[in-house]
Amino acid sequence: MQIDPRGPRFAAAVTTVVFVLILVTGSGWLALAQAAVFALGTAGQSPYAMFFKAFVRPRLGPPSEMEDAAPVRFAQAVGLFFALVAAAGYLLDLPVAGMVAAAFALVAAFLNAAFGLCLGCEVFLLYRRARG
């Protein structure tokens, strides 16, 4: 499946803001809500991407190229892992674990939004190399 690459960039920008809010407020429930967004994203049903499609994309021109949806979904699964650890940390009164996981997720989302760097995609080959 092919998607407009600006959709995931938009979603990453929203995700960046959400993780800043999670860190500032220390809200485990907000982290859990973001985890739910990632879970939907792994199925290609990201609410942020849907918002992009419905309200942002009609105002933009057509994309110069399309990209494959598979790497984006893989990255959403990596995000889901970090959001779940962050949520568990804050909700189970382990705020340091929550902060560390949320900070990693924030870095990854920001790199994707600002530089187009998909950290989960970069790590994928290292993971496959190590596993053999």
Binding site: L23, V24, G26, A103, F104, V107, F110, L111, F115, L117
Partner: peptide, 24 residues
């Protein structure tokens, strides 16, 4: 600022530096 806000600021700064290094 609370500790979480400091961590968010530090993480964003680290990400900018990492992103620039990656780009170069």
């Amino acid at each position: 600022m609370n500790p979480g806000a400091w961590i968010a600021a530090a993480a964003l700064l680290a990400a900018v530096l990492a992103g620039l290094a990656w780009q170069r």
